[in-house]
Design a protein around this nucleic acid. Structure first.
Lengths: 162, 162
DNA sequence: CCGACTGAGTTGCTTGACGCAACCTTGTGT
DNA sequence: ACACAAGGTTGCGTCAAGCAACTCAGTCGG
């Protein structure tokens, strides 16, 4: 995506997309949510250009969606964490995941599932546990590899195992 | 957005974004959902370049998200309608709308609200009626202008009135 | 009969975001 | 002394987006 300003749009969807509608941004958020926190880890996992990843991370930190924290000094090395604002994107990601699974299904089934941490139930397109019926939030769920996951890179399994 | 292919991504979120993650695409879907169905109407409302709108509409029809129907002959004139696949994007749009309203609030309140057609209740970020508790779908809800809507163009009011 | 207007695009040109590779910096391992 | 790792930055070419002008078929007003 180019600069994502939609001039003249008063709608909140347009305002949301100004930030998270840029190319790669939502995938970065997804990966951080799944436990990928470091620059190189994100870069290799996504295959995004390094300068673009750098720009996106800066923007996400400015927008208070990610937080950049040093995990060691000399040399300083950083990790990125989701803020509450970033975690609140979870319902949107779940909705997009469900839409993709429903309308462009993988022949072997979905590559990634989301389950309720508490009871292990599957999570619906609205972020509701289909087993216990609870309305879930980002911290209540975790991804697990689905039947459609072809074991090519080993990356997704590693992430899902966390 | 540029070409939205995310090579090597098996995730359904990535596959969803390949289609609807392009610049303008989700705003076009939103407008069609709100009753804007014609080329010029969409173009003026969004302020998108005509060639880009043309390309997006073609792509959305190819992807079976929109359907193009002639509403008159000689000269042939067309309208765009959402398919079931397109209507199923409603939960994602609702989630993005709610996220924008929560985290980048308009000083006067949200510019657009979504209400349950059946009981008039407000719709939550999960697409659930806060008044009667029902799980809603696209056809069960409609947009109404919110307190934050500045009356500049008159376009949004016209749409919301449908 | 002529000109203006409408809807639904298409064409051509310019700008600017993205992809790629190379480079930089600080520090560690061998 | 050299390679390697993490976390970027810089430079360059390409391709999508923005903008304006044009097309085409038909309709309306004078």
């Amino acid at each position: 995506m180019l600069r994502n300003d939609y001039p003249g749009q008063v709608c909140s969807i347009a305002r949301s997309l100004e930030v998270i509608g840029e190319r790669w941004t939502l995938l970065i958020v997804r990966d951080v949510m799944n436990g990928r926190r470091r620059f190189d880890e994100l870069q290799k996992g996504l295959g995004v250009a390094r300068n673009v990843l750098s720009a996106r991370l800066q923007r996400l930190v400015e927008e208070d969606i990610l937080e950049r924290r040093a995990y060691q000094q000399s040399p300083e090395r950083y990790e990125y964490f989701l803020t509450e604002k970033g975690l609140d994107l979870w319902p949107a990601l779940v909705a997009l995941l469900a839409w993709g699974d429903r309308h462009s299904p993988n022949p072997d089934g979905p590559p990634m599932l989301i389950v309720h941490k508490g009871c292990g139930g599957a999570v619906s397109d609205r972020g509701i546990c289909e087993s216990c019926g609870k309305l879930l939030h980002a911290r209540d769920a975790r991804p697990v590899p689905g039947p459609g996951l072809e074991s090519t890179g080993g990356e997704a399994e590693a992430v899902a195992a966390r």
